[in-house]
């Protein structure tokens, strides 16, 4: 992830990580403003794996108490936009 990535690019990245953890999610059906676990069976372990994958991809230390901000796709995008200043892409 780079500081000049657009919100759309960040969203694509969030969805990619989400689908790695829970490939049963259909992005077209997903309401990005609503918590993921209100729409799909997405348990605490899934959530943890999702948060870790996002942190790794963005080379960002996401403290656990910020995890609640990652509950929806939009929330995760906002969080990454807010915290990504100066972080280079992992790949």
């Amino acid at each position: 992830m780079t500081p000049n990535m657009s919100a759309d690019e960040i969203k694509a990245l969030v969805l990619e990580k989400l689908l790695q953890v829970a490939p049963d999610i259909e992005p077209a059906q997903l309401d990005t403003a609503t918590p993921i676990r209100d729409q799909y069976d997405f348990d605490s372990m899934d959530f943890l794996h999702f948060a870790i994958a996002l942190g790794q991809q963005c080379q960002l230390e996401i403290p656990e108490h910020d995890y609640r901000e990652l509950q929806s796709v939009d929330g995760a995008v906002d969080y990454l936009v807010k915290h990504s200043n100066g972080n280079a892409a992992a790949k």
């Binding site: 829970a22 490939p23 049963d24 069976d41 348990d43 372990m45």
Partner: peptide, 19 residues
């Protein structure tokens, strides 16, 4: 790999399906 995992999660749910 992802397709197989997706099927397992849909049928079994996350508590039972392979991660």
């Amino acid at each position: 790999q992802q397709e197989i995992m997706a099927l397992a999660r849909k049928r079994l749910g996350p508590a039972v399906a392979p991660r």
